[in-house]
C-alpha cells in the first residue's frame, strides 16, 4: 500500500507493508538519522515528531501516519545551521555516543515549541522517554535550559 508523508517539509510517497512500523519505513528510505533500538517504545532513540508531537516511531504503524507531517532531527537543524538546542547539547556536554541525542533533542524541541520557559520538572518530564546510557540527564536538562537562553538571544 502507498502512504503520503511530509517529511521535514518535503512531500513523499512510499510503498509500505500494511503491518510495518514507521521506523522501518523511514530508515529504508534513507532517514538513517532516526535510530532503531528497542522496538518497544521504551528507549526513545527512534523519536520523531508527528504533526509536531513526539512519538516513538518503532511503535507507530506506518499506515496510521498517512497524510501526516513528520519531523526528524534533520528537520530541526543541520551541520551547517544547527538549532540552538543542538548547539546547547554540544556546549553543555549532553552528547557522548550520540545514539539517543536525536530523540532527546526532538522531545525538547516539541516542549519548547509549546512551552518556551519550562521548569526543570517540565523538562525532565518531556525527556522521560528518552533513555541515555552515557551522559546521564543532568547535562541534558542544563542543555535545554541553555538553549532557551540561546533562543532568546537569537530573537
Amino acid at each position: 500500500m502507498k502512504v503520503h508523508y511530509t517529511i521535514n517539509g518535503e512531500k513523499k510517497i512510499f510503498e509500505i507493508k500494511p503491518g510495518e512500523v514507521l521506523l522501518d519505513v523511514l530508515r529504508r528510505n534513507g532517514y538513517s538519522e532516526v535510530k532503531g533500538n528497542c522496538y518497544m517504545g521504551t528507549c526513545g532513540a527512534c523519536t520523531v515528531l508527528i504533526d509536531g508531537v513526539p512519538h516513538t516511531s518503532c511503535t507507530i504503524l506506518a499506515a496510521k501516519v498517512d497524510n501526516k507531517s513528520i519531523t526528524t532531527i534533520k528537520g530541526v537543524g543541520t551541520l551547517q545551521h544547527p538549532h540552538p538546542l543542538q548547539k546547547a547539547f554540544v556546549e553543555k556536554g549532553a552528547v557522548q555516543c550520540g545514539f539517543c541525542t536525536p530523540g532527546a533533542i526532538l522531545s525538547a524541541y516539541a516542549l519548547l515549541k509549546e512551552n518556551p520557559n519550562p521548569t526543570d520538572e517540565e523538562i525532565k518530564k518531556a525527556l522521560d522517554g528518552n533513555v541515555c546510557r552515557c551522559t546521564g540527564y543532568v547535562q541534558q536538562v542544563e542543555a535545554v535550559k541553555f538553549s532557551i537562553k540561546l533562543l532568546k538571544e537569537e530573537k
Binding site: 517504545g41 521504551t42 522517554g129 528518552n130
Partner: peptide
C-alpha cells in the same frame, strides 16, 4: 495521568 509510562508513550 502524568505519571503513566513516558511522555512519548503517553502521546500514543
Amino acid at each position: 495521568l502524568g505519571e503513566v509510562a513516558s511522555q512519548l508513550l503517553r502521546n500514543q
